[in-house]
Amino acid sequence: MRVLVAGSSGFVGQRLCPALVEAGQEVRAMTRHPDTYDGAGEAVYGDVHDAGSLATALQGCAAAYYLVHSLDAADFQQRDLAAAENFAQAAANAGLERIVYLGGLGDDDDDLSEHLRSRREVEHALGSAGVPVTTLRAGIIVGHGGISWELTRQLVEHLPAMVTPRWVRTRTQPIAIDDVVRYLVGVLQAPEARGRAFDVGGPDVLAYVDMMRRVAAIEKRPLVIVPVPLLSPGLSSRWLSLVTDLDTQTGRSLVESMRNEVVVRDDSIRQVVPFQPMSYDDSVRAALAERAEALLQL
């Protein structure tokens, strides 16, 4: 099957493309910079914000993965919605059988943050032109280079003691990047996954503060955490930009999402793609090992 990957150069895409090739798929890696793309698959030019560029990129494809978002822009909701609408129409015009989208966990009945609401809007927009969408909804994805994981790691490594806002008590269900990729590959041709949304997560449900403590224990670092009742998203994001390499806008988007509990409510994905996901501690060790290897290659 010829499959387009939109977001092929990103954190998930650069791992998904080789996994799809290994699974026997013909991968077309969509990028705004095909001349410098050095990942798996055939590089093709395409920009989700340029509707005219998508027809050529999607030509001859049977399915597509959509791994695009723009958290670092102040108007990310509008940008992401417009991009998804462009892609949906181009996919319908190209006769695609399916779009696979990686979205975000979160209860629709909750007061979702702008970031999580945007993920839902994109999910619906991708199906607006009639192409069936398979959605995998994930919380924190643990892997070298992932934004949420890097936030956790850098806080632990840069601050032996920290004053934290109340969101550190919010529960989440982290998942290893390798397991996300395994699910993404597995749902591609599964007939029972067509047009459905699935929650994906690892076996551990943890508060953010417990995630940081586990990372500190694995790295054998001291960590003292003092929660405070009031610390606004704006102040939190500025604090994060000082002690991590996240920009303020991305930090604010993530912090606002951390008020929402993001845990798996429906584990039916386990019947569609059956395997045992990695524990949080093992996923942390894998991410740290990958980072260490990458640093050796610099």
Rank of each mutant, 00 (worst) to 15 (best):
F275S: 08
I225T: 01
E192T: 06
G201Q: 00
G60W: 14
L67D: 12
G139Y: 01
S113L: 03
R291H: 13
L54V: 07
E42P: 14
L151D: 12
P229M: 05
L102Y: 08
L254K: 05
V27L: 10
H33T: 15
V187M: 12
F198L: 10
R117L: 02
Q78E: 11
D109W: 08
P191C: 14
S9V: 09
Q59D: 13
R291W: 05
P203Y: 06
F11D: 15
A57D: 07
Y183A: 13
I141F: 10
V264Q: 00
F87Q: 14
L188I: 04
E42G: 12
R270A: 01
G46K: 14
L81G: 09
A62L: 15
G127K: 09
H144L: 10
G7L: 08
V68K: 09
Y45R: 10
V156C: 07
P277H: 00
R166T: 00
A161I: 02
G52I: 06
V228R: 02
R169I: 04
T244E: 14
L81D: 14
E219L: 09
Q59K: 15
A55K: 14
D75T: 03
E293H: 10
R117K: 08
T135C: 06
L295H: 14
N260K: 02
F87S: 15
A40C: 11
V156I: 01
L254I: 07
L16D: 05
D247F: 04
F198E: 03
G146T: 15
V3M: 15
V226Y: 01
V262S: 15
A6D: 09
T36N: 12
A294L: 06
V262W: 06
H33Y: 11
T248A: 06
E219F: 01
D38M: 14
A292F: 11
Q25G: 07
S283Q: 05
G41R: 13
L295P: 11
F87W: 14
G139Q: 00
S236M: 08
L67P: 11
G127T: 08
L235S: 07
A207F: 01
D35L: 15
S148Q: 07
V27P: 13
E26V: 14
V185D: 05
Y183T: 06
W167P: 15
L20T: 12
N86E: 12
